[in-house]
Amino acid sequence: MRLEIANLTKRFGDNVVLDSVNLTLDGINSLVLIGPSGGGKTTLLRILAGLEHMNDGNIIINSHCLNCPEQELLEYRRHIGMVYQAYNLFPHLTALQNIVLPLTQVHGMEKRAAEEHACSLLERFHLAEHAHKHPAALSGGQQQRIAICRAVAIKPEYLLLDEPTSALDPEYTSEVLDLIEELHEEGMELVLVTHEMGFAHNAADYVLFIADGGIAAHGTPKDIFETRENPRVNRFLDKVLKYTS
């Protein structure tokens, strides 16, 4: 994945969330965004997902230029996968229908073929027994895994995940992270916002520490989690890791 951020600025009213951010990265398979709440991680991810327009600057990710009109952003969104913190699935559709909906309506697949494709995905991630359940009948972990299945079913260029485990009971966190890890090992490119530092350490190729309206620090997981040169990052990590052994 090639990422080029130039002078990116995003405001909500008077509140400047991202202030002239610059960054160029190349050959990254998994990019992890960490940092304090309200620092702008999610906003950056949403701009990367084509869900939010930027006020100024530009982002070029692979060959896509993201400072463009809504119609082009819609086209862009169709080729990437996005998973939110929670409530990804439509409550009136079963797990299977949730996966099939974008395949048939957005990507023009035949219903039969889409269902077969969805079933094989569910099978692979050991979710086949839940295919015909509605989200309300599933645990939070199962819901997130199915949401990830839906996102990868369209064979996206890359997968964006916004704190996919933050709304889960702790016992379900690992099953979701395992699935993400598995996808990563298969070569799926990821951009992930997370508070799971252990996972960030293991799975990331590159880590951005986002705080105070910009990229306060960035580097390989080794730089961020082991060398620990940046005092701002260290303060954050000390707090986050205080009660983990």
């Binding site: 819609l74 996005m82 409530y87 439509f90 309506q105």
Partner: peptide, 27 residues
Amino acid sequence: VGTTQIETAKAIGLTKPQTYRFVIFPQ
């Protein structure tokens, strides 16, 4: 119908009319 669902519909690439048809109206 929650805003997160409308966001999700947007993220998976549904157009506005499709969002109404497949996500909002059935609920």
